[in-house]
Computed example of a mutant assay.
Amino acid sequence: MKRLILLRHAKSSWDDPVKRDFDRPLNEKGKRAATLMGAHMQEAGVLFDTVIASPAVRVVETLESVAKGYGEAIEPEWDRRVYLASNMTLLDIVHEADDGSDALLLSGHNSGLEDLVLLLVPDTKGDAARAAVEEKFPTCALAEMEFAVDSWADIAPGTGKLVRYVRPRDLDPDLGPDDPQ
Rank of each mutant, 00 (worst) to 15 (best):
S101L: 02
M88L: 14
A97T: 15
S107M: 04
G71E: 07
D98P: 06
L91T: 01
L104I: 07
D115S: 13
V66P: 01
D115R: 10
V59P: 01
A132M: 07
K136P: 02
L91C: 00
D127S: 08
G108A: 08
S101C: 10
K68Q: 15
E134W: 12
K68E: 15
D123A: 14
A132N: 10
V59G: 01
E114L: 06
R58C: 13
Y70M: 05
H109E: 00
L105H: 07
E64R: 13
L105D: 09
G100T: 12
E64D: 13
V117F: 09
M88H: 12
P138C: 10
D98F: 00
R130M: 09
S107T: 13
E135S: 11
L106S: 02
A67V: 08
T124A: 13
H95P: 11
A103P: 00
E61Y: 02
D127A: 09
R58M: 13
T139E: 03
D123F: 10
N110I: 10
H95G: 14
E77M: 12
D98Y: 03
R81A: 08
H109S: 02
A128P: 01
M88V: 10
K68M: 12
I74V: 13
T89W: 02
L113I: 04
G126T: 05
D92I: 05
A67I: 05
E77H: 12
E134C: 05
D92T: 14
A131G: 10
T124Q: 15
T139D: 08
G100H: 12
G69A: 04
N110G: 09
S86M: 07
A73Q: 13
V82Y: 03
W78S: 00
G112L: 03
L63E: 06
L118T: 09
G69Y: 06
V117C: 06
W78R: 04
F137M: 01
L119M: 15
E75S: 14
S107E: 03
S101P: 02
D79I: 03
L120H: 05
D98M: 02
R80W: 13
L105P: 04
L116D: 00
